[in-house]
Computed example of a mutant assay.
Amino acid sequence: MARKTTELWHTGIVAAPIAGLMTSDALHSAEIHWLPDPGAFRFIADPFGIWRQGRLTILAEALDYRVKRGEIHYFILDETGGVAAQGLALREPFHLSYPVLLTEGDDVFMLPEGHRSGKLTLYRAEHFPDRWLPAQTLLDLPAIDASPVRYGGRWWMFFALPGDDNRAMRELHVAFADSLHGPWHLHPANPVRNGLDSARPGGTPFEHDGTLHLPTQDCVGGYGRGISLLRFDMLSETRVETSVVSSLKPQGLRGGWDDGLHTLSAAGNVTLIDVKRLDPSPGRVWIDLQRRLRRLLP
């Protein structure tokens, strides 16, 4: 019997803006500072960041395999890149991940992935970064890794949907709106892109040379194996044309973490990434058993 492996992710801060990391060479030559290890059978993934009062705050998925339900945690970095404060940002009865951060005036919004709720919910910070309230439902769909951006005078949102045959990893869907708060309209050409190599969103959309780009996950051979940078050669309410302009791989970014790279998100003059390793430790079997027993006990 093959030994069960545990998927672990580790978050890093790259000392370069996202538009300067459009090739693997650029990413591998950049300085990377890594968040502290969260401990055995835990990981920090899907990092998104925002600068406030001169400090970078990162929100990310935090998962402990003893519970196996993602929460959103925050990490406030000091001037040296060390973690000055950290804690729980958002917990729901369902799994949370991919906490995209947006600002509008003085308000800070978070758009986490919570597709098991059956809808896409926008949250507003009542007290940043540790108290969030649901603001509104943007889509009555179980959208996965929704990535909104204002471009060309309107809002666009890129996302995946759950389904059979790895649908969440092979179809890219689009919606558009005049305002972040909607109403959002599904693109008539959905899904606008098919293929395991470059469909599921993997970070923040960004402009480069006047054209919109979207980090997407390369899932050929497994979930989140690398990043494919997608360029939108045409983006309108009726047509979408895309092409892959580069591929980013995890090998060599952090020793022993060569099994995946599935987030590339912009935070001003830095970029946030996560890398994966598959841990063969047999302790995972005992952790899974304990979790199942707790669910059975009253």
Rank of each mutant, 00 (worst) to 15 (best):
W156G: 10
T121L: 11
H187S: 14
D145Q: 03
Y98Q: 10
P201K: 14
D165A: 14
D140H: 08
E171M: 04
S97C: 01
S147A: 15
L180M: 14
P129A: 02
D107W: 01
L111D: 03
M110W: 04
L138D: 02
F128A: 01
A146V: 13
A199S: 15
R170N: 11
D107I: 10
T80M: 01
P188F: 07
N194C: 13
N194G: 05
N194V: 06
L172T: 01
L122M: 12
L139S: 13
V100L: 09
H187F: 13
V100S: 08
G118M: 07
S179D: 08
L186S: 14
Y123F: 13
L133H: 04
A143H: 00
L90C: 01
S179F: 10
H173Y: 15
D106H: 11
T80A: 09
I144S: 04
N194W: 07
A160E: 06
G182V: 12
R167A: 14
S97L: 02
L138V: 01
P112R: 07
L180N: 13
F159R: 00
P142V: 05
Q136C: 05
G87V: 10
T121K: 05
P112S: 11
Q136Y: 01
P148Y: 05
G195F: 00
P112W: 06
P112C: 02
R154K: 08
G81E: 02
G195M: 06
D106G: 13
R200F: 09
D165M: 11
P112N: 05
M169C: 11
G82D: 15
L161I: 09
S97N: 07
L122T: 07
G163V: 03
F94G: 05
L120G: 04
V192M: 11
G163I: 13
N194A: 08
K119A: 12
D106S: 08
R124K: 13
L139N: 14
R200L: 13
L88V: 12
L102D: 03
G81R: 08
G118V: 10
